[in-house]
Design a protein around this nucleic acid. Structure first.
Ligand SMILES: [Mn+2]
Ligand SMILES: [Mn+2]
Ligand SMILES: [Mn+2]
Ligand SMILES: [Mn+2]
Lengths: 218, 218
DNA sequence: ATTATTTTTTAGACTTATCTAAAAATATTT
DNA sequence: AAATATTTTTAGATAAGTCTAAAAAATAAT
């Protein structure tokens, strides 16, 4: 079928194409995959050969229908495994990503179907990202960035944009988790940092960099 | 760390070394790995370089302490995953092996520790093979081959030597599973086949080839 | 419209794991 | 002990994925 490497490229292209309406650039892929542009070009030729992407020299790439299907199925597996690790093996949300990065490549339709059933068809992963169903469909969650909240507004944390362990551990320390109720007490203009009242108890101060990686209810 | 391929070679050598007291031959490894002897030689040099095996040209190989540890840890993972698939994802015992063959290579100490805990530290996998604990220790089950039973003897099926789906499906069809009580009704000398009374109900006829792949209580 | 900069591709090399074919060592037969 | 057969190793090739360095194309700046 497809190699781990091919699958990872497709996933990267999928994620990048959600951030632009043009084709995805070779360099952006290289950056995301932590590899060199020349390696990316080699792989693009191969993926194009396999009809997984639309590729014309110097033009950037888009996923074909087939390519998108593969990408979404990898994301589905990734998120289902993350859910499993947190809900059944007592992993913390900052520990699951690297393991899911491996598990997502296990090739068994039956496995993932049964896992989904075992988990009772969860809709969101531990970071608040939607889990595609068997057909590849998933809701685009209605949510805004914490930075977009206005003073006095109340919301609930729905997810995070950044999955790095250090970031998630920092959120744990601040007491910010999925489901946490937050109210914007103050917005500081000079550095765009925010004072938050969490669960109507403590107040914490979050930097712009932190706030822009947190999704809250709309 | 070690590549999937290296891990598979170590596992193969481990299994083969349990069947001989001499060193394991290049050819036997090639046969088990379904590859060519020349490829095996290449890998032996590499594993030797990494101090995972004791290798001298033309002499056959043995695992070092380190090599044995790796092999047993892979087997531990393989069998824990098989147990998980059967007990929690409703796989049949003939479906688990190829999937476990992939899962066994996932590299996370925490994952396998937590999985073991979640499964409640099972002692045997779905084929009756013992599951090594965290330290690599496991009981050598006291069992004999079905072919070694004498006429009139009663025993319980404890495991199978062959994990091929076709074999296990055939056993299902015959009504032979782990835990099934069997009594030798007749042994036919001319082809070494056996008539078995199972669970004091039906009688089935099993060939020598089938019987020698079934383990029963001693 | 040139020139300069950035992006992308090509050319050639390296690594891992594999193969075929041939050579070397070991084991078996006569 | 010599000849024959088998096993194992070497030599050289190939495919996947990566890299560096250089060339080509596209963008941006003057
Ligand atoms: Mn993740
Ligand atoms: Mn991945
Ligand atoms: Mn197995
Ligand atoms: Mn394996």
């Amino acid at each position: 079928m497809h190699s781990y490497t091919e699958e990872n490229y497709l996933k990267a292209i999928y994620r990048l194409s959600n951030k632009t309406d043009k084709g995805v650039s070779t360099n952006s892929i290289a950056e995301r995959m932590e590899t060199k542009a020349s390696s990316v070009t080699d792989m693009l030729k191969k993926l194009s050969e396999k009809k997984l992407i639309n590729y014309k020299k110097y033009q950037g790439v888009t996923l074909t229908k087939k390519g998108k299907q593969v990408a979404v199925s990898i994301i589905r597996k990734h998120r289902l495994w993350e859910y499993f690790l947190v809900e059944h093996l007592n992993f913390n949300w900052d520990q699951v990503h690297p393991v899911a990065e491996e598990l997502e490549h296990i090739k068994s339709e039956l496995l993932i179907e049964r896992l989904d059933e075992f988990l009772n068809y969860p809709k969101y992963d531990p970071h608040g990202d939607p889990i595609p169903d068997k057909e590849g469909n998933f809701p685009i969650p209605s949510r805004i960035k914490l930075t977009e909240m206005s003073k006095g507004q109340k919301s609930v944390i729905l997810g995070v944009m950044e999955n790095a362990a250090s970031f998630l551990q920092y959120l744990d320390k601040l007491g910010l988790n999925i489901g946490t109720e937050v109210k914007v007490v103050e917005k500081h203009n000079f550095d765009n940092s925010i004072d938050l009242l969490i669960n109507n108890k403590q107040t914490v101060h979050v930097s712009h960099e932190v706030a822009r990686n947190i999704f809250v209810s709309n």
